[in-house]
C-alpha cells in the first residue's frame, strides 16, 4: 500500500516535471518566434504591403475600365482591354513590343564591353588600380544627368554633328529620326557599360591560374586559353549577368523616356512597353487610356517575361559550365 502510494506520487511528480519542461520549451519557442518575427519579419511585411496587395490589384485592374483617377467610375469590362491592345489599329502594343525587343540588342553589346574591360583589367598592367576606379565611376552618375548631356551631344548643332561636319557630312538629327533614335540610345549606354566589369573581374580573379598556365605550356595561344578555359569557367557569372540584363532591357523605361523629345519619340520609335504603359496611365487622357489599359498591358507583358525567365532557367545547363 505504502509502496504503491509512493510509486503513484513519483509518477505524478514525473508527469508534472515533464509538463513543466514541455511548457518551458513552448514558452521558449514562442519567445524565439516573437524575437524572430520582430527582427526578421519586416522585409516580409513590407513585401506584403507594397508588393502583394498591389499585385492582387494588378490582376483585377486589367479587367476594369478606368479612364480617370476617379475610382467610383470603375466598371468591369472583361477582356475588352486586352482585345483593344492586341487588335485595335490605334493600339501601339505591337510597336512597343518590337521596340523593346530591338532594345535587347544592347545586352550583348554592353556585356561584351564589360567582359572585355574586365579581361584587360585582369592583365594587371601598371595603373590598373586607377583604371578600375575610373571604369566603375559611371555607377555613380545619374542617368538623368547623362541623358541631358547626350541630348546636347546628339543635337543638330551638338558635339557629334560638329565632328561629322569636319568630314563634310550633313547634320543628322539623331533624336528626331526614326532610324537613328534607337541606335543613339543604345550608344549612350556604352558609356556606363564598363561599370558592370567589376562583377566579371571577381569571376576572372577566381579562375584557377594553374589551368591557364597548363594550357599555355601546351602551346595554346592567349585567345585559345580565353575561349577554351577562362570563358567556360566564368560562364555562371555571364549567365547571371545575361539574365538580369535581358529582363532589365526588356523593361527599359528611363533612358528612352529621357532621350525622347516627345511622349513617343519620332514616329513612335521610343515607345517601349513600359514607356507605353506609363503614357497610358499618366500622360495620355482619352476613352482608350487609363490605369485599366496600362494594367492590361502590364499583365500581358509580365506573363511574357515570366515565361521567358523560366525558359532561360530551364535551359541553364546548356549555357553554363558546372564548376563543381
Amino acid at each position: 500500500m505504502e509502496a504503491e502510494n509512493v510509486e503513484a506520487l513519483e509518477g505524478v511528480q514525473a508527469e508534472i516535471v515533464e509538463r513543466q519542461r514541455k511548457r518551458r520549451k513552448t514558452v521558449k519557442i514562442i519567445k524565439q518566434d516573437i524575437i524572430g518575427w520582430l527582427m526578421g519579419g519586416w522585409p516580409f511585411i513590407g513585401a506584403m504591403i507594397f508588393g502583394f496587395i498591389p499585385s492582387i490589384i494588378g490582376y483585377v485592374l486589367p479587367f476594369m475600365e478606368l479612364h480617370t483617377f476617379d475610382y467610383s467610375q470603375m466598371e468591369f469590362v472583361g477582356f475588352k482591354n486586352f482585345e483593344w491592345l492586341l487588335f485595335n489599329e490605334r493600339s501601339m502594343f505591337w510597336l512597343a513590343l518590337k521596340n523593346s525587343l530591338y532594345y535587347t540588342v544592347s545586352v550583348p553589346i554592353y556585356l561584351g564591353i564589360a567582359l572585355f574591360v574586365a579581361v584587360q583589367l585582369d592583365k594587371h598592367i601598371k595603373g590598373t588600380g586607377a583604371f578600375r576606379v575610373i571604369m566603375f565611376l559611371p555607377t555613380f552618375v545619374s542617368s538623368v544627368a547623362m541623358s541631358i548631356f547626350w541630348q546636347f551631344m546628339f543635337d543638330k548643332t551638338g558635339g557629334f554633328n560638329s565632328i561629322l561636319g569636319l568630314f563634310g557630312v550633313a547634320p543628322i538629327d539623331f533624336l528626331d529620326d526614326e532610324l537613328w533614335f534607337m541606335p543613339s540610345v543604345i550608344f549612350t549606354g556604352t558609356w556606363g557599360a564598363c561599370a558592370n566589369s567589376v562583377l566579371f573581374q571577381a569571376a576572372l580573379a577566381n579562375v584557377d591560374i594553374s589551368m591557364k598556365e597548363a594550357a599555355r605550356i601546351d602551346g595554346a595561344t592567349e585567345r585559345q586559353t580565353f575561349w577554351k578555359i577562362t570563358f567556360p569557367m566564368i560562364s555562371p557569372t555571364t549567365f547571371f549577368q545575361m539574365l538580369t540584363s535581358l529582363v532589365g532591357a526588356l523593361q527599359v523605361f528611363t533612358s528612352l523616356q529621357l532621350m525622347a523629345r516627345t511622349d513617343t519619340g519620332p514616329n513612335g520609335a521610343a515607345v517601349s512597353v513600359v514607356l507605353y504603359m506609363y503614357n497610358m496611365a499618366y500622360q495620355w487622357t482619352g476613352p482608350d487610356y487609363g490605369l485599366g489599359m496600362a494594367g492590361a498591358c502590364g499583365l500581358m507583358y509580365q506573363t511574357v517575361l515570366v515565361i521567358l525567365t523560366l525558359i532561360i532557367f530551364k535551359t541553364k545547363k546548356r549555357w553554363v559550365h558546372d564548376n563543381d
Partner: peptide, 17 residues
C-alpha cells in the same frame, strides 16, 4: 526573381487609396 511591371498602374492605385 519575378519581373515586376504590373506595379505601374496597380501600385499607384494602392498608394492613392
Amino acid at each position: 526573381l519575378m519581373p515586376d511591371c504590373v506595379g505601374m498602374g496597380a501600385g499607384y492605385m494602392w498608394f492613392d487609396f
